[in-house]
Design a protein around this nucleic acid. Structure first.
Lengths: 123, 123
DNA sequence: TATTGACATAACTAGATGGTTATATAACAT
DNA sequence: ATGTTATATAACCATCTAGTTATGTCAATA
């Protein structure tokens, strides 16, 4: 049982917000929003080392923001956008501040909850 | 100029997401969503020391998630909900994943941008 | 004026974070 | 079999974080 939410564990929010707190990880996630990428492809635009990228990917994976699959000797990262739901849910608590237009968020949440159940198109 | 956003600096996203990555700070923000509170009031439900709370408040203030004002010897904290806009804006990039219902978010963003300009009720 | 209450600041500590280099593993290419 | 490519893991380091206790400041009160 959680202090004030029902569906979102505090630990998951911790993991998701911490993962998103790093600009490199946010940028990686943005790129993964467009296509699946291998570790080397993910690393290529950055100055930092490949092991550093592997660590970032582990953080994103632990937060549930990406999933990984093996293709030959590559490890492809794929975004798992449903996990961002926990952020939307958390934001929902503050919608009172910006008026009725944010009530649409409720609808979004319902849509997301419904699609969570068939969330296995897997490419 | 920013890599892929226009209105949201990466530094502010860093600050906001890091601030929200801590469960105590999220809970403080939830409570401030209901009413302004003094430092002592904010600290009262927790086991941790008053200086620890002061540090959390400094983090929230630095992220722009709260503002503070002096009332007698109290320092009242007040939520600054407009700042959560940067999270909504960032999420907007991923709306493609959950279908047309999230297009409403654009409307929310416009509403928020408009109200950002008159954001000085400050009581 | 002296005391109490509300808060901030300083100095410290343990553990997490984000990076490094070096090395291991495993698949592919020759 | 050998070398190369893709990735992970280990060991290490500097810095940040979230907490602590001790103390300072300043307003309210007795």
């Amino acid at each position: 049982m959680n202090e004030n939410h029902c569906l979102t564990s505090s630990d998951q929010l911790d993991a998701v917000f911490s993962a998103l707190a790093d600009p490199t990880r946010r940028e990686i996630l943005s790129r993964l929003a467009e296509e699946e990428l291998s570790v080397t492809e993910i690393a290529s635009p950055y100055q930092i080392s490949q092991p550093a990228i592997s660590k970032h990917l582990k953080v994103l994976e632990h937060a549930g923001l990406i999933v990984r699959k093996t293709n030959k000797q590559q490890r492809l990262a794929k975004i798992k956008p449903e996990t961002l739901t926990v952020v939307v849910e958390w934001l929902d608590e503050f919608k009172v501040f910006w008026g009725a237009s944010f009530d649409q968020l409720d609808q979004v949440l319902k849509t997301l909850e419904a699609s969570d159940k068939k969330e296995r198109p897997d490419e």
